[in-house]
Amino acid sequence: MNQLKTRFPLSSGQKFLTGYRLLEPSKRPIYVSLAACSVVIGLVMVMHQKATMFGLAFVLSGMIGLGKSVQGWFEEFNMEKWKRQHGSMTVRGIKVGMALFITSEAAFFASFFWAFSHACWGSCSMNMVWPPIGFRCISPWKWPMYNCALLIGSGLTVTYAHKAAKWQERSPYIHEERVHKALNVTCALGGFFMLIQAYEYWSMPFGMYDSVYGSCFYMMTGFHGLHVIAGSVWLCCCSQAASNRAYMMRRPHLGVQLGVWYWHFVDVVWLLVWGVVYVNGSVWY
């Protein structure tokens, strides 16, 4: 037990904080589950073109519920960290949980890559045409390549922000502004990525219901876009926190570090999407 104690006093009634953190009862998991269920039901209704307006309403209400729940969770997380209630074992558990979450997301995208590759190689093995006749594939060397450059550049800026957050321990008044600016640049690059993706969708010659090619294409790129939006919101919250000097003095590196992990995962997924969908599709075309 002595190894789990920290030197940070918790309150006047409790002298030392152990490495473990017992959470108080919360209703947020129930709210998140209901909101996620609403989003899934709405997406199913929209995809099957049944009661589309009600489906969009379900999706919108679910997204708002998820956003409010996540915002509340972040506020509680930052408050606990501000009160120095995160011991060594708590931080370790948070990192392990984030690693498992990214692993589950990797398995999620792997299922789409497998579906696309199976349809591609299965069609070729049976001497069929891939992509299907009538499809005009998007050139991988134009807008998709620009998106690759944007995400690679954002990976460099977010890594610099993480390094600056570590350097902040030694010179807090010098590096806090660098963290803030680097995270802002990363969020801006993510925003430009989404603008290019939206323009690509607008000019796309095929839709989501056009064969398995269109379904896999929109599912992979669409869900990746949602992850880019989520990562940008996360890093924007970290950037806003980095602008608070008093908050930076409390070593808020954990949130930045987890955001960096998530953003690098988004970068790697896009490179795989670009190689498997855009380049592979154009080669067979």
Score class of each variant (00 low, 15 high):
M145L: 13
S154P: 01
V268C: 12
V158A: 00
H118T: 11
V273W: 01
L258V: 10
K50V: 11
T221M: 02
S26K: 06
R136D: 13
L254W: 01
T103F: 15
T18F: 08
S104V: 14
V40W: 02
S61A: 15
K5E: 02
P144F: 03
S282Y: 11
F58Q: 02
M63V: 14
W143Y: 11
L271H: 07
V129Q: 09
F265W: 08
F223E: 00
L254Y: 03
V91E: 09
K181Q: 12
G72I: 07
A110R: 05
C124Y: 10
L258I: 10
Y146G: 07
M204N: 14
C187M: 06
V91A: 05
V96L: 14
F193D: 00
R21S: 08
A107C: 15
M45V: 09
W270C: 01
T103D: 15
Y285N: 15
I94C: 05
W167C: 09
P144T: 09
D267Q: 13
Y285S: 15
V91S: 07
T221N: 03
G222C: 09
I102F: 08
G259C: 02
F101Y: 13
R84P: 00
M128K: 11
C37P: 11
S69T: 08
Q240M: 11
R245D: 13
V185N: 04
W234V: 03
G19K: 02
S243I: 12
E75R: 11
G155F: 00
L22V: 15
Y262G: 02
E75G: 06
N244L: 12
Y285V: 14
V273Q: 03
C37Q: 15
A242P: 07
V70R: 01
M63F: 10
S33G: 12
G275N: 12
E76V: 10
P131N: 04
T90E: 03
E24M: 10
Y146P: 01
F223M: 09
L17E: 00
S26Q: 06
S239P: 05
C216A: 06
V129T: 12
G62W: 01
G275H: 07
T6D: 06
M47L: 15
S123H: 03
M248Q: 05
A242H: 03
L189G: 00
S117L: 11
L10G: 05
N244G: 10
S215F: 09
P252L: 05
S239Q: 07
A164D: 03
Q71Y: 04
R21Y: 13
N280P: 09
V228N: 01
T159F: 08
I41A: 09
W167Q: 10
W82Q: 13
V269P: 01
A188G: 11
Y20V: 14
A107Y: 15
C237T: 12
S154L: 00
R21H: 12
L23R: 14
M145R: 04
P144A: 08
E75S: 12
C124W: 10
L100W: 09
